[in-house]
């Protein structure tokens, strides 16, 4: 464990806590893409299938449980909670996310570390996570002004993978035969997708203005 990876995990945790706070405090999920939440639930379920067979550390196991449970709770809340689900922007959240699932699955069958069930699921989860934010970014562009908590949620979610890239660079230089090129390349694509969001987020912070993404 290194400081970049720990900071990345904490940033990821903060993004989920900010999202939970937004939904709980405002009893609304307006501006949140349910499709992105469903994709993330799939990412965690596919990536953490080894939670019962591979014990790495107490920290690792607890974080896996927290990520799976919180994301499933958010999806349930956006689908089942009678007050929250009314504020879901159904007509704006129209990204065809099934294509993202299919494309990630095909790519995982072609490019993986080992042709085993677990490794293909792991590669699938890595590729899917890289594109999982797309429905959310499209929804932000369509829904005009973005409320603070939603903006912070997306910011922390994008920042965590950027910190993971620093973690991979650090491990590359400090650990012999460290190679995570699938996660690295995918992580670079994932972080690059946030580039324009980060730009407008920085502008809104610098000008102390409301965050607004151009349509």
């Amino acid at each position: 464990m290194n400081i970049f990876r720990f900071a990345g995990d904490m940033t990821h945790l903060i993004s989920i806590l900010v999202l939970l706070l937004k939904i709980y405090a405002t009893k609304s999920c307006s501006g949140i893409s349910r499709k992105t939440q469903e994709l993330y639930a799939l990412v965690f379920l596919a990536r953490y299938v080894d939670i019962f067979t591979e014990f790495i550390s107490v920290y690792n196991t607890i974080m896996k449980i927290v990520f799976i449970a919180s994301t499933l709770a958010i999806v349930w809340c956006m689908r089942g909670h009678r007050v929250v689900r009314r504020s879901y922007d159904k007509e704006l959240d129209t990204f065809r996310h099934y294509f993202l699932i299919a494309a990630s699955l095909v790519l995982a069958l072609l490019v993986h570390e080992k042709f085993t069930f677990q490794e293909i699921l792991w590669a699938f989860s890595i590729y899917l996570e890289a594109v999982a934010i797309l429905p959310q970014l499209v929804l932000l562009q369509r829904s005009g002004n973005v409320d603070n908590l939603t903006g912070q949620y997306v910011f922390f979610l994008g920042a965590y993978r950027g910190l993971y890239i620093l973690n991979w660079i650090y491990r590359y230089f400090t650990e012999p035969h460290f190679s995570r090129w699938i996660a690295c390349v995918s992580g670079l694509v994932q972080t690059a997708l946030y580039a324009d969001f980060f730009y407008y987020y920085f502008l809104s912070w610098k000008n102390n203005a409301k965050l607004k993404l151009p349509a």
Binding site: R47, E54, I56, M63, F67, E119, Y164
Partner: peptide
Amino acid sequence: LKLVNNHDEL
């Protein structure tokens, strides 16, 4: 610490 897959990251 034996890892079947070398995925020690979240």
